[in-house]
Computed example of a mutant assay.
Amino acid sequence: MAPDDKDHTFATRFRIPRRMWDAYGTAAARKGIDRSADLVDHVRDFIQTHGNEQELAELAAAEQELAERRARKGGRPKKETAV
């Protein structure tokens, strides 16, 4: 992906034991939680709690980018309620 490409969500890779990732996936699915959305929520919360002025500004810009993208694509998919 080009560094200036603002039309796509950045995909990143990180190392995690397969068993941990699989357990996270099954636990999240059981609660009706999407792993990707949960990770994004965690990153957002972490920045809000521990971020400096620049990092908080970057978070605000990222949130704006997400809002614009969702507006173009019809909004964020509705969360299904866990039963």
Rank of each mutant, 00 (worst) to 15 (best):
M1F: 04
M1R: 07
P3M: 01
P3V: 02
D4P: 02
D5N: 03
D5P: 01
K6D: 02
D7G: 07
D7K: 11
H8N: 06
H8A: 10
F10C: 07
F14D: 03
F14Y: 15
F14T: 13
I16M: 13
M20E: 09
M20Y: 10
W21Q: 14
D22N: 15
Y24N: 03
Y24H: 01
G25Y: 01
G25I: 00
G25D: 01
A29C: 10
A29Q: 14
R30P: 04
K31G: 03
D34R: 00
D34K: 01
A37W: 07
A37H: 03
V40Q: 14
H42E: 12
H42C: 14
V43R: 06
I47E: 02
Q48T: 12
Q48R: 11
Q48P: 06
H50F: 12
E53C: 06
L56G: 06
A57T: 13
E58I: 09
A60K: 09
A62N: 07
E63S: 10
E63H: 06
Q64I: 05
Q64P: 07
Q64A: 10
R69I: 11
A71N: 07
R72K: 14
G74W: 04
G75Q: 09
R76I: 05
R76E: 12
P77C: 05
K79C: 01
T81F: 00
A82W: 08
